[in-house]
């Protein structure tokens, strides 16, 4: 694995970000808008007396973590779309760049994006709603790391589908993660789900992460069971999705799709 080639791909995206209005909106505008809307909803709930204890903590905390998952996924899928739109995939994969280096670069890109979006959202939440996400210390950190890995898994899955089915699947880069939202229990506890969906939610890493987050925010203790479930499931799914991506890449090379993707 060559660090130089990974940095080359990162520099390509850095050049793009400094000029792309759409990519900048993803970092500044949309997360800010989400935060403002959910902040007002929370204030409204408190005013009409329908509040539950710590509504701000629940909703804003959940929203910030949801954006971590969403942007981590998008960091990977949109990076691939950028190459597809620019008809640059041939330049990349006819170079010495390996699939492993490509994936590492997009995962790094996703971490950078999450760091930028997460920091800004925490800053906005603190400025506008006096909400300090890390007031209980660094207990949330292992959950955030797991959330980033879940974002990678969904991002690589999305990318492999776009690579296989081309432009008709590109909407998944923005929509795929929402398929997981109902069973990820972002804004409500897992017990709210019907029994069948609860069983499914148990094998969805973000569901454990959001359950864990709520426990951290209310009890300020790390719920070890949820953390272990999330980490274990993420490790298994990450391995499986990387194998799946290599397989899809080889299928696309075999069927001549890699040179036609985006046409």
């Amino acid at each position: 694995m060559s660090v130089g080639r990974i940095l080359a791909l990162l520099s390509r995206h850095m050049y793009l970000y400094k000029r792309s209005f759409a990519r900048m909106l993803e970092i500044f505008y949309w997360p800010f808008l989400d935060l403002v809307v959910w902040g007002f909803i929370t204030i409204y709930l408190e005013k009409v007396g329908m509040s539950m204890q710590g509504a701000v903590t629940f909703f804003l905390g959940a929203l910030i973590l949801w954006d971590v998952l969403f942007r981590a996924q998008q960091g990977i899928a949109v990076s691939f779309l950028e190459e597809m739109w620019a008809r640059n995939l041939m330049n990349l994969f006819a170079s010495p760049l390996t699939v492993g280096e490509y994936l590492t670069a997009t995962m790094t890109m996703s971490v950078l994006k999450v760091t930028a979006v997460g920091s800004l959202m925490m800053l906005f939440a603190w400025v506008f709603y006096s909400y300090d996400m890390f007031h209980m210390g660094l207990s949330l950190l292992p959950f955030i790391l797991n959330l980033v890995i879940s974002g990678w898994i969904i991002g690589v899955l999305t990318t492999s589908i776009i690579m296989r089915f081309g432009q008709q699947a590109e909407v998944l880069a923005w929509g795929m993660v929402f398929l997981f939202q109902p069973i990820s229990c972002v804004f409500y506890p897992m017990t709210v789900l019907p029994p069948v969906l609860q069983s499914i939610a148990w094998i969805v890493p973000p569901a454990h992460i959001f359950e864990g987050m709520r426990a951290v925010l209310t009890t300020e203790a790390i719920p070890v069971t949820h953390l272990l479930w999330a980490t274990g499931l993420n490790a298994v799914f990450l391995l499986l999705i990387v194998i799946w991506f290599y397989h899809t890449f080889n299928v696309c090379k075999d069927r001549g799709m890699l040179v036609r993707v985006g046409e």
Binding site: S2, G4, R5, L7, A8, L9, S11, R12, Y15, L16, R19, S20, E82, E83, A86, R87, N88, M90, N91, L92, S95, P96, L97
Partner: peptide, 22 residues
């Protein structure tokens, strides 16, 4: 029939390629 990333300048594109080939 190929292209290169549109949002980059000519020099930036060449820099990325140079780094890819180390």
């Amino acid at each position: 029939y190929i292209s290169m990333p549109f949002s980059l300048t000519v020099e930036e594109n060449l820099k990325v390629i140079a780094r890819l080939y180390e």
